[in-house]
């Protein structure tokens, strides 16, 4: 675990698979995100990220969209070597 490699989720390009490392949102939202499967340590797939507008994530087979502001409050680590 090397925090130097972490980046905001909003910066991850489409197609990458990343590990969620830290969730920095208010209490209510972080438990909501947890309920949808977004919890530190979980692997998520970035299905759609246009660098503008919401981000679509693949979590365990379901698709969840997050507003860009929220997405940038999640720190992730890119662990996929190749694009897909």
């Amino acid at each position: 675990m090397n925090p130097a490699l972490w980046m905001p989720l909003g910066m991850v390009p489409t197609g990458r698979s990343v590990l969620l490392r830290r969730v920095q949102t208010g209490h209510g939202l972080s438990s909501r995100l947890a309920a949808m499967g977004l919890l530190p340590g979980m692997r998520v797939q970035v299905c759609h990220n246009d660098r503008n507008g919401p981000v679509i994530l693949g979590i365990n087979g379901s698709r969840v969209m997050l507003g860009r502001g929220t997405a940038n409050k999640l720190s992730v680590e890119d662990t996929s070597e190749t694009g897909i």
Binding site: L29, L33, P54, S62, V64, M65, L66, G67, G69, T70
Partner: peptide, 11 residues
């Protein structure tokens, strides 16, 4: 604060 936008995309 504008409510965070979190929504599932059903298949």
């Amino acid at each position: 604060e504008s409510v965070p936008f979190v929504m599932e995309l059903p298949p």
